[in-house]
Design a protein around this nucleic acid. Structure first.
Length: 875
RNA sequence: GCGGGCGUGAUGGAAUGGUAGACAUACCAGACUUAAAAUCUGUUGGGCGUAUGCCCGUGUGGGUUCGACUCCCACCGCCCGCACCA
């Protein structure tokens, strides 16, 4: 399917010219007609089909593909309008552009819809895709639709299953136990999003943590590579690199054991990991996770401990929830000996804030130098031992832990290494050395990054292609049996995974021994789907995950654009996948970092409208259903301040309405105006009117100046002032696009429009200037630009016309205005030749009346001249 | 709680450490019109003022600099992420 095979449905009249007495001989800017016309023209010429072309450099621009919710929202329009600016601009610069689009089509909302309306997730998703594609087409993006796919296509997820099997072979994926949110009433696994205040969103039951055997990608084996790889990503935002580095969380610390004073069960010592071994003499207790093997052993014999651990396991699994929960502890009664002093014993506590999957699941608490430990110590009346003070202040810690930066020198109290005045860093080094020399501990590099659990106990995802055989164990499905397709005949009348209760799908034969066996019923995390789609776009029809020749040509993505909310997970997973695919030969090694440049756009926000149902649970309402704070039936809604547009909060705006009223170009222009792309923008209807007004103005200029258009594109601009304005605009608009400052490009285009409209230059000059304006506007408002170009007699499609180049001679001004500051405040100005020597500027500045007055006969203390910029006189 | 970011007129925002407020919206005034809309022109950070003049002003408080929206420190407010939302 091509870009305009189905013309969008648009109003035929423009809303701001609705007066029936408008003379009929006067034509108007008719977005509906214009946009359909040019979309058809682009489609006929197949302008946007990506082609391998050895004579041109390639450019791969990609926006994060959407989840097919059924409606494009303004956030999408913003995202794809930005990508389209880049794609069209790069095409005009002569690049062979790949700009594909597809659907991130698996996921929870389809299952929720299935539960709510009794509809199968497949048709629901397909219908949404069809609706959204129509909206996409009406916006006129320069997308290569011949490469379209959805992650729920068996052709796609079958290749994903092949990848999984390859990963399995290379040891990149394995099974282990992990906890999930378990709803004991609905008897189902819940996503973190489905847990509200520790309760299941539907049942309201207290959520429990439950252990399940699940599949994991060995992403943590690549921690160091993923961390050091960030250094090469110079065209990624610094904040994203920082966030990823912090997420990977490389730390150096000490691992060592505390011997139990009396062995318990098979435990004779407890291993701890700490990043602050230098504070070892400040230890006042040992803390272990409720999931620590020792805690589990204690549970078996001690009902009170079992009850405490059970309490710790209530509530959701999310880190935010655990971190903000009240800190609780339980004294096990066991004690350990301090490694540096066998007479010193410490109590062992079980604490709910200690995670089993970081370090060893056991810590020693240093209340004097860790706020959380201090709160814990005060709550349970444990000792607080100062191990260091500020060099000039030896006040013991009371309610606020003393935690200076590790680089700051502090004075130590009886430090085991003998240090007196030293930084934390130096003390850490010394303590690790001491432990290694003494043989009681070893320095360890630890990462916060955990392996990526990919198992989901759900239907609407990519089936994990493994089979459980009683004789052969867990074996991969044979590749010739791929794809393992999801069965269609499933029901959603019960919670849980329909694959589990499917009568026949689960039963299969073992690919190894041919005996009876059972399929895995878990499906993959949807992050897996989106971790390699960019690679698949290079050869969407290939019978293997990628076609190596195509991947080698098109990879990497030269410009990736998406929401900052994906700064960590999606981008980190994709970086891991690219490495894993390279290991399996599906991508060249040079694609290990798949996204050369990244831009994270801000979010489009909107107010949220909420009411509550009889049970007090929130019910959200779409903006189009709310007028003046009330629903159609008069119910008042609670207005919650602007937040990220999200399907679950229903604070989404339908761009279809804007396109129908004003046209696609207005929607695009408006989304690119005003707000810097990286910043959040609140959607307002007021901006649309002004955008539309401007496009009308450009169109009217074209109508005025196009009357006398001769054949062929308008020639050069001879009028000097106009020519300079045009050159300036070319340079500034280009710089704005290159720097992802589309809002400033838009401002410069407004400026050039104003200059052309007010210019008294000959009509041919103004027409030529307007033709340049059209070319500069083409990436943003492509339909109007084509129309204006054609009205002015331009030949060919603007979509295939090279980007204009500014005459450098016209960018340099002969004279400059230099502000004169006196003591840093602007007091006067100087108009001088641009190349005037510094000494002469100084002389002119000292002769300036304002300067003479300020000096009052004296000499300046200092005279700063920055040629071309400013003069500052210090008196 | 932890990690990251943002904060400038009535509003969205502009500004390689160098004239703060470009461009746009809104408001006000004028032109055109019987009138309105549309369109066009002009004004608009606050204060004093006859002024081509002065004072204040980029969340708050400090600091660096000849010069700070920009760099550094602390604080306040808002936003994003926190591994099963996508």
């Amino acid at each position: 399917m091509t870009a305009a095979s189905k013309p969008p449905t648009l109003l035929t009249s423009a809303p701001l010219s609705s007066d029936p007495r408008t003379p009929t001989h006067m034509s108007r800017y008719d977005a509906a007609t214009i946009e359909a016309k040019w979309q058809a023209a682009w489609a006929t010429a197949e302008v946007f089909s990506a082609r391998r072309d050895s004579t041109r450099p390639k450019y791969y621009v990609l926006e994060m593909f959407p989840y097919p919710s059924g409606n494009l929202h303004m956030g999408h329009v913003r995202n794809y309008a930005m990508g389209d600016v880049i794609a069209r601009y790069k095409a005009a610069q002569g690049f062979s552009v790949l700009h594909p689009m597809g659907w991130d089509a698996f996921g929870l909302p389809a299952e929720n819809a299935a539960l709510e309306r009794g509809m199968h997730p497949g048709p629901w998703t397909r219908a949404n895709m069809a609706a959204m594609k129509e909206q996409f087409l009406s916006l006129g993006f320069s997308l290569d639709w011949t490469r379209e796919f959805a992650t729920c296509d068996p052709e796609y997820y079958g290749q994903q299953q092949a990848l999984f099997i390859d990963f399995l072979e290379k040891g990149l994926v394995y099974r282990k136990n992990a906890v999930v949110n378990w709803d004991p009433v609905d008897m189902t696994v819940l996503a973190n999003e489905q847990v509200e205040d520790g309760r299941g969103w539907r049942s309201g039951a207290l959520v429990e943590r439950r252990d399940l055997t699940q599949w994991f990608f060995r992403i943590s084996d690549h921690s160091d590579a993923l961390l050091s790889g960030l250094d090469g990503l110079t065209e990624w935002p610094e904040k994203v690199r920082t966030m990823q580095a912090n997420w990977i969380g490389k730390s150096r610390g000490l691992q060592f054991g505390f011997a139990l004073t009396a062995p318990y069960d098979e435990f004779s010592a407890l291993d701890v990991y700490t990043t602050r071994p230098d504070t070892i003499n400040g230890a006042s207790f040992l803390g272990i996770s409720p999931d620590h093997p020792l805690a589990k052993a204690l549970e078996a014999n001690r009902p009170d401990i079992a009850e405490f651990c059970a309490e710790c396991r209530r509530g959701g699994t999310s880190e935010a929830e655990r971190e903000t929960a009240e800190k609780k502890g339980f004294d096990t009664g066991l004690t350990v000996r301090h490694p540096l002093n066998p007479d010193w014993t410490l109590p062992v506590w079980i604490a709910n804030f200690i995670l089993m999957d970081y370090g060893t699941g056991a810590i020693f608490g240093v209340p004097a130098h860790d706020q959380r430990d201090l709160d814990f110590a005060r709550k349970y009346d444990l000792p607080v031992i100062d191990t260091f003070f500020a060099p000039d202040d030896a006040t013991p810690v009371a309610d606020i832990a003393f935690t200076p930066p590790k680089t700051e020198p502090v004075s130590w109290v009886n430090h085991p290494t003998g240090l007196e005045l030293a930084s934390g860093e130096a003390a850490i080094d010394a303590t690790i050395a001491l432990a290694e020399a003494g043989g009681w501990g070893k320095g360890v590099t630890q990462y916060r990054l955990r392996d990526w659990g990919l198992s989901r106990q759900r239907y609407w995802g990519c089936p994990i292609p493994v089979i459980h055989c009683e004789r052969c164990g867990v074996v991969p499905e044979a590749k010739e049996n791929l794809p393992v397709k999801l069965p269609e005949d499933v029901t959603f009348d019960l919670p849980g995974n329909p694959l589990d209760r499917h009568p026949t799908w689960r039963n299969t034969t073992c690919p190894t021994c041919g005996g009876e066996a059972l399929r895995e019923t878990d499906t993959m995390d949807t992050f897996v789907d989106s971790s390699w789609y960019f690679a698949r776009f290079t050869s969407p029809g290939a019978a293997t995950p990628t076609d190596p020749a195509e991947a080698a040509y098109w990879m990497n993505v030269d410009q990736y654009i998406g929401g900052v909310e994906h700064a960590i997970l999606h981008l980190l997973y994709s970086r891991f996948f690219a490495r894993a695919m390279a290991i399996c030969g599906h991508l060249p090694d040079t694609a290990a970092e798949p996204f050369r440049a990244l831009f994270t756009q801000g979010m489009v926000t909107h107010e949220i409208y909420r009411t509550r149902d009889t049970a007090g649970r929130p019910v959200y309402h779409l903006p189009e259903h709310v007028t003046d704070g009330r629903l159609a039936d008069g119910t008042a809604v609670e207005v919650i301040p602007s937040a990220k547009m999200s399907k679950s909060k229903k604070n989404v705006v339908d761009p279809v309405h804007i396109v129908e009223t004003y046209g696609a170009d207005t929607a695009r222009w408006f989304m690119l105006s005003d707000s810097p792309p990286e910043r959040d923008v609140e959607w307002t209807s007021a901006g649309a009117d002004s955008a539309f007004k401007h496009l009308n103005r450009v169109w009217r200029l074209a109508e005025d100046l196009g009357q006398s258009a001769s054949d062929g594109a308008p020639q050069g601009v001879n009028d000097d002032a106009l020519a300079r304005a045009v050159a300036r605009a070319i340079a500034d608009v280009t710089a704005g696009i290159e720097g992802f400052a589309f809002n400033t490009s838009v401002a410069k285009l407004y400026g050039l429009t104003n200059v052309i409209a007010k210019s008294k230059a000959p009509e041919a000059d103004r027409a030529a200037a307007l033709a340049i304006l059209a070319r500069l506007m083409a990436p943003m408002t492509p339909h109007l630009a084509e129309e204006v170009w054609s009205m002015l007699g331009g030949t060919g499609l603007l979509a295939q016309t090279p980007w204009p180049v500014a005459d450098p001679a016209l960018l340099v001004d002969d004279t400059v205005t230099l502000p004169i500051q006196i003591n840093g405040k602007r007091r006067s100005e100087l108009v001088v030749a641009a190349d005037l020597p510094k000494a002469e500027i100084e002389a002119l500045a000292l002769a300036d009346p304002a300067v003479i007055k300020a000096l009052d006969g004296g000499t300046p203390k200092k005279l700063i001249v920055v040629p071309g910029r400013i003069v500052n006189v210090v008196v």
